[in-house]
């Protein structure tokens, strides 16, 4: 019973934080709330027995992401979202509500949360759970699956991260170009 209460409360906090992020206009507050959002989701992962995932989310989502967003905010010198006059949010709101309703309709057939006999639990997972300690001698099944059974997959992920690093270096690593405002003043010499 107690885990259901924790589950319900944490998820409610997550939803409230997300709605607060949408309604706010101060970017600094939004970024800080996003850090809180990440920590809450990490707590949620712990409740759902995903220790490795919680660990990663706490380090990455609440740590690195927040730092990068703050750096972007400092670079763009933009602290407030401007709400243009006469802008009506009805169309996006309608799209979101219709999509959400369709998705909720889709959940009616999903097996209940925590169901031991759900199809997701009965195909590859039992093999990993039974054999990973025999095959690899590594008690942490997540590491065994990540590095051994699905090593090829992880190789791809590492290459994706490497590529993203190169792309950021290409976009921001070079010399700083003059902004549009500065260009209007002098001659536009692009480097």
């Amino acid at each position: 019973m107690i885990d259901v209460v924790i589950n319900v409360t944490l998820l409610a906090f997550l939803a409230i934080t997300a709605v607060a992020i949408v309604r706010m206009t101060n970017l600094f507050a939004i970024i800080m709330l996003y850090g809180i959002f990440s920590f809450l989701s990490a707590a949620m992962f712990v409740v759902m027995d995903a220790a490795d995932v919680a660990f990663t989310e706490a380090a990455v989502g609440a740590g690195i992401s927040t730092v990068l967003m703050l750096a972007t905010m400092a670079l763009t010198k933009d602290h407030e979202e401007k709400r243009p006059a006469g802008h009506r949010p009805w169309l996006p709101l309608a799209v979101v509500i219709v999509t959400g309703a369709a998705l909720v309709y889709g959940t009616m057939d999903i097996p209940a949360f925590g169901d031991v006999d759900a199809p997701a639990q009965s195909h590859v997972a039992p093999y990993y759970i039974e054999k990973s300690i025999v095959d690899t001698g590594v008690p942490n099944m997540v590491t065994a699956v990540l590095a051994s059974y699905r090593g090829f997959d992880t190789l791809g992920e590492v290459v994706v991260i490497f590529t993203a690093g190169i792309a950021v270096l290409l976009l921001l690593g070079g010399r700083r170009r003059k902004t549009a405002a500065e260009n209007r003043g002098g001659e536009g010499n692009d480097t």
Partner: peptide, 20 residues
């Protein structure tokens, strides 16, 4: 994996910090 993630995260952070 560890070496790549460490280096890429720092490359990204230094790129943002150096831009300022």
């Amino acid at each position: 994996v560890g070496i790549t993630v460490f280096a890429v995260m720092l490359i990204i952070f230094f790129a943002f910090a150096g831009r300022g």
